[in-house]
Each structure stands twice: as structure tokens, then as C-alpha cells.
Amino acid sequence: MAAEPQATRRSWSLVDVGAAAAVLMALAGVVWSPKLSGAVAEATGAMQPVTVMVDVRGASVADPQALIRSIRDDGEVSIVIRNQPHGTVKLQELVPLQRRLVAVQPDGRVVTALDPNQAVFSSLDARFVLEGKGRKTSGGVVFGNQNLKIGAPVELEGRDFRIGGTVSGLKLGAS
């Protein structure tokens, strides 16, 4: 009689366990990838137009009016949210802001006047109205795979500039 072969039991080596863990981590990375979730949101119709208002205050600029003209001519800016580049967004509008001085008079009246220093010390004070795509979540508006809220610091970058600003308004849906 011939002896029956015994079933060999395979044991897992440390290399096998490491390879399996690497494959599982790669799969998890693909499934939870921000770009993939953005693509899925785009495909399912969860992405909506988002209007983001960014206020820039006191940015030192030699010729603010020339910079404003240049930005308007380009019609788009790159946006960086929490040091993560989002990409290029359309510039809907660029509104120069005028600083005002406030003084309380001895009789209790409050008087305001345009700040004359703004013309002497050239600086950029403007509101950038930007248009992009985002989605509504329980934590707010996701714009550029980053949760964006009013008060969040962002950087705007163009051909000739890179300036910091603060989100001053968000509007989700048709603008």
C-alpha cells in the first residue's frame, strides 16, 4: 500500500504578513483618497458651484491699481488652503476696499473719513470673489478637498503675486 501524502500546513512568515499589510494599506489609500472622493462627488452630482469671498488687507504693493488690473485681466487665481494647493479658480469679481478712519468727537458723535494713508503707503486692500466647485458636508463646505469656513486663512497666487487673505464669505449653490 502506498502511503497517503500528508497535507502540508503553510505558515505565515513575517515577510508574508508585511506584504499583506502593505496591500491592505494601498487599497485603503485608494478608497479614501481625497482626489477619488472628489471625483466620486463630481460623478454623483454632489459637487455644486461655490462662491468664496477672500479679503486681503494691507498687502504691501508698489502699484496696487496695476496689480488689480493684471489680476482682472488674468481672470483666475490659484488658491492654497492650509498649505495645500487647491488649483486654479475663476475670479468672478475683484473689489478694491477703502479703509476708513473712525473718530469719536467730544460731543459723542462718531465721524468717519477715508484713510489718507492708503494713498501714501501703497498697499492692497481688496475682496476677491472666487468661483469654484465644492460640496456641503456636516462640517461645512469642502472646497479643494479642504473644509473651508469663514475666517480661514488662504493664500492667493497669480503670475505676479502671492498674497495671504482671509475667507470672509461662502455661498453654496448657484451664484
Rank of each mutant, 00 (worst) to 15 (best):
T8Y: 08
M53C: 08
A19K: 10
K171D: 12
V142P: 02
V31N: 05
D73G: 03
R109A: 12
Q105G: 09
R82L: 10
A2K: 11
A41N: 04
V89G: 01
E131Y: 02
V102E: 14
Q118R: 08
T8S: 15
G165T: 09
L172I: 12
Q92V: 06
L67H: 00
L97A: 15
I79Q: 03
S138R: 15
Q6G: 08
R72F: 07
L101F: 08
A28N: 12
V23M: 11
V142R: 02
A2N: 14
V141S: 01
V129L: 02
V111H: 09
N83M: 04
D55T: 09
R9L: 15
K35E: 07
P116G: 13
A62N: 11
A113V: 07
R99F: 08
L148D: 00
V77R: 01
G29D: 05
D160C: 04
L130Q: 00
E42S: 11
D73V: 06
V56Q: 01
A7P: 14
E76I: 02
G29R: 07
V141G: 01
L97T: 14
D160S: 06
E76H: 05
A22I: 13
G38E: 06
G165C: 08
V50C: 03
T112L: 14
T88Q: 10
P5Y: 05
Q6F: 11
R162F: 13
